[in-house]
């Protein structure tokens, strides 16, 4: 469940974050402004508060009772999209302006230039900061336990009384350490996979280091 939720969140964030970033860089002023408000809103509110808004808040005030999983997905996914939009915005802006100029000088429309020139470069630049987002989203899923999503953390809490009765109170710490290790391993595995992707897409002279040297 934790893995599923993480993937769902990152997917939602990615799907919304990319267009948001491009809108923020290339959009007309009202579009940019709207994106800015969205981004500031979702980055400025604690994750737990967001989750409660999308679950209890909506249910109590508007009688819209979303399933716990959907609430968590929505709250944390939108939040992640705001964070990811900033990662991608930075990456897009790190692509030198000459790239856009050269693409336009060949007769590419803005959209084509973005698709064939800016995007492939920005994507590569965004992988390293994106691993950060992956790590924090993975661990934020534990907050979904607060509204009853049965993910790793909730399962652990549910198992606590049983463990205590069967093995004694000391074993609670062992249980929690075991859970911590699971999170650690998941984070490490994800980062390893992203590192692998980064290397696969590596182009000579395109790493950040190379860009500074030139």
């Amino acid at each position: 469940m934790t893995v599923l939720l993480t993937l769902g969140l990152l997917g939602t964030g990615l799907l919304l974050g990319f267009p948001l970033a491009f809108a923020q860089v290339y959009g007309y002023r009202p579009v940019r402004w709207t994106c800015l408000v969205y981004e500031q809103f979702f980055r400025g509110i604690p994750a737990l508060v967001l989750i409660l808004i999308f679950h209890s808040g909506l249910a109590r005030s508007f009688h819209i009772l979303l399933p716990a999983f959907a609430s968590a997905l929505l709250a944390l996914g939108l939040r992640s999209s705001a964070y990811q939009s900033q990662i991608f915005r930075g990456a897009i802006q790190a692509v030198p302006t000459g790239q856009m100029l050269a693409a336009r000088s060949l007769g590419m429309s803005k959209l084509k230039a973005i698709r064939y020139v800016i995007l492939p470069q920005a994507f590569r630049l965004s992988i390293p900061p994106w691993t950060n987002e992956f790590s924090s989203v993975l661990k934020d899923t534990s907050l979904a336990s607060a509204i009853g999503v049965v993910e790793l953390m909730k399962k652990t809490m549910l198992a606590m009384p049983t463990i205590q009765n069967a093995l004694g109170a000391r074993w609670i710490l062992v249980l929690l350490i075991a859970v911590a290790v699971v999170y650690l391993v998941l984070t490490y595995a994800g980062n390893w996979a992203l590192g692998f992707l980064e290397n696969r897409l590596q182009i000579p002279g395109f790493e950040m280091k190379g860009m500074v040297e030139r």
């Binding site: 790239q99 100029l101 050269a102 590569r124 395109f206």
Partner: peptide, 8 residues
């Protein structure tokens, strides 16, 4: 002046 070849 600065070539602006597509880096990728």
């Amino acid at each position: 002046q600065s070539f602006n070849l597509f880096t990728h």
